[in-house]
């Protein structure tokens, strides 16, 4: 029932056409399988790749009028991060402000503020940063990594921070606990 039995019957002069006829279905099959299952696999990839991050949204921090030049404040995000913000300019735009993240650029540990040394210090590998977030010691200094900054937004004279809102309170009803 396979074509091999039929092959010797074919004449030799239409060799190229015959080859094509033999190969076309195989190519089509290969294409069909790769295209179909490939697309399916790409869906799987997208499924596993987390959906867009809903856990960050600009959050109100302060109004520009009450946040004066030279002042600094600590903002606690709903997720619990503390962000040190300071105002360094008076243009009334987002460039006036610095919001330092407390995530060390080296390997992601949490830095903390050391008042007596006037620096941010990372306990993991003794990295240190000045109040502006520039590296002063440890691996971050060697690699010249500054403390990352939070995105800020100024809108209608109000300052917003693009901080994590991970600890969510759902607006829809909480699932009922079973007794």
């Amino acid at each position: 029932m396979t074509e091999e039995t039929a092959l010797p019957d074919q004449t030799v002069d239409n060799e190229p056409r015959r080859t094509f006829l033999l190969r076309f279905p195989s190519a089509l099959m290969a294409f069909g399988l790769v295209a179909g299952y490939g697309m399916f696999a790409s869906f799987i990839g997208r499924f596993l790749f987390p959906s867009r991050n809903r856990q960050r949204r600009p959050q109100y921090v302060a109004d520009l009028n009450s946040f004066k030049l030279g002042q600094s404040m600590t903002y606690h995000s709903p997720a619990g991060e503390s962000v040190v913000l300071s105002r360094t300019g008076e243009t009334g735009t987002v460039d006036d402000f610095i919001a330092l993240s407390s995530v060390c650029p080296h390997l992601g540990c949490q830095v903390h503020w050391e008042g007596q040394n006037n620096r941010f210090f990372c306990p993991c590998h003794n990295g240190a940063f000045d109040p502006e977030g520039n590296p002063t010691a440890g691996p971050p200094k060697d690699a010249n990594q500054t403390l990352p900054r939070y995105q800020l937004v100024v809108q209608n004279g109000l300052l917003y921070i693009d901080a994590s809102t991970k600890s969510l309170v759902r607006t829809d009803s909480q699932p009922q606990a079973l007794v």
């Binding site: 869906f43 997208r46 499924f47 596993l48 790749f49 959906s51 809903r54 699932p175 606990a177 079973l178």
Partner: peptide, 30 residues
Amino acid sequence: LLAFYYQPSPETAYQSVRRITEEVNYGWYI
């Protein structure tokens, strides 16, 4: 694939299925 997102506890089961259905990419399809 579904097990990547499903959370088997009475408090979270329904919400996690809802999340798969409504939020995760192609979650409804899978």
